[in-house]
Design a protein around this nucleic acid. Structure first.
Length: 119
RNA sequence: GGAGCCUGAAAGGCGACCGCUUUUCAUAAGAGGAAAGUCCGGGCAACGCAGAGCAGGGUAGUCGCUAACAGCGACCGUCCGUAAGGAUAGGGAAAGUACCACAGAAACAAUACCGCCCCUUUAGGGGUAAGGGUGAAAAGAGUGAGGUAAGAGCUCACAGCGCGCUGUAGCGAUACGGUGCGGAGGCAAACCCUACCUGUUGCAAGGAGCACUAUACACCUUCGCUCGAGGAUGUGCGCUCACCGCUAGAACGUUAUAGCAAUGUAACGUCAAGAUAGAUGGUCGCCAACCAUAUAUUAUAUAUGGUUACAGAACCCGGCUUAUAGACGGCUCAAUAU
RNA sequence: GGAGGGUUACCCAAGUGGUUGAAGGGGUCUCAUUGCUAACGAGAUAGUCCGGAGCAAUCUGGAGCGAGGGUUCAAAUCCCUCACCCUCCG
């Protein structure tokens, strides 16, 4: 689990990222990201009740994603807010290495997209 | 072995590495039996100056247990089952009102459709409620005998029901009797009557602190209504607003003791999550149980693969209900074998 | 976390115990109209599952109002349990 410092703490922050941020879509999940002025990265994971009905399953998806991000935290560009939105309940049983790969792809694309925009 | 019934307890274990939350900053602690559904009952808190009345809601065999309950235990009645057992909102319909579609002559009440009998006569009048027909239900007391023009509780005997009085057993529901009277359809999870309980809203309750905007409207109120009482309301809100409430309690464990039991009492011991975009985890390894396949061999062993449920505290307790892999205990019936 | 409401045919829905043909509208199909189309007008179809009759069109019996129980002679309707969906709160 990620330290509380690097997670979101209110609804307003999430709403800001949704409004101002860019989105990258994949079949199983998508990533919304935007710059912040804090000087460090913040991450949120969104799992809808429609994706997985049981609270145990939702908690498990959330924890696995936080854990995968924590292990690769140094590879993620800093000073940015990320929100991961989950669409598939396969993430409960997906092998951990595959999950890490998927998250890596999303973060890389976000990096490329950002670099293009800034020249 | 087959078919079936019931009960309780438990909720795989150990280790490594990397993390999270609380904190006395370490060497500590960190999800459940249902944490769930929110169906009941409390504690706690606010509202109401203090309250009062009405309305509304709930419960419904008896006795007990409990802080309380629609819960639990024991017992009684009724129904279902060959049985083990199961189900049971189970007070009142002789207080009143409503409803009982269609069919049927008639639905709680009558001038009775067919029929039966008598009289006049070929169409009526009268008697009757045995039989037929309709319907979920037909003036609703079954069988036998008497009785009659034909019949009928019209009369009698036996059986059975209800109510009043009453005897025995039981705290009681009730059971087994005695005696007198009676002929009464169903429905109260329809209104209602009786007895008992019940103010409303809920920790997003509420208290205290920080920041911002507006001063327009006259309404708003956490008692449903009346009497009575009160003054606020609204807007914004990425740059973590956040403290108290917030966890020691009808607590848990062990032993003794009273009781058939639910449960109570006493002694000793223990302190055991407190998050808030929401901690209590992630990834591996080994073992355990079960399943499938293969091999050796008929009892297991080995190897490989798979499975190990339901499910996540959100103020806290007592219940209920629902979900749940595999495994464990007791009992009944029938058949077979001994 | 707490409070409240809903679920009836492909869609929107009425129906508060009684033959319910399960109103009504939209939609769909046919006819009529028009050079053609739309709209207006007329009529029809009403959906699903199980069973029976028939060469077939079709006719007919039963089940069925989110699911399962209960009360009642009779339940979409009354009561209980469960599932799903929606709304509200500082």
């Amino acid at each position: 689990m990620l330290n509380r410092k690097y997670r979101f703490h209110s609804r307003g922050g999430v709403r800001y990222v949704y409004q101002k941020g860019k989105t990258i879509r994949k079949p199983k999940m998508s990533l919304v990201f935007a710059d912040n002025t804090r000087g460090f990265t913040r991450v949120a994971v969104v799992v809808s009740k429609k994706v997985e009905k049981s609270a145990v399953g939702r908690n498990r998806i959330r924890r696995r994603i936080y854990e995968a991000l924590r292990l690769n935290f140094e590879d993620i560009p800093k000073k940015r807010d990320y929100i991961f939105i989950v669409y598939s309940k396969d993430l409960v049983k997906m092998p951990f290495s595959e999950l890490e790969k998927l998250l890596g792809e999303l973060v890389m694309e976000a990096k490329v997209c950002y670099n293009k925009e800034n020249g």
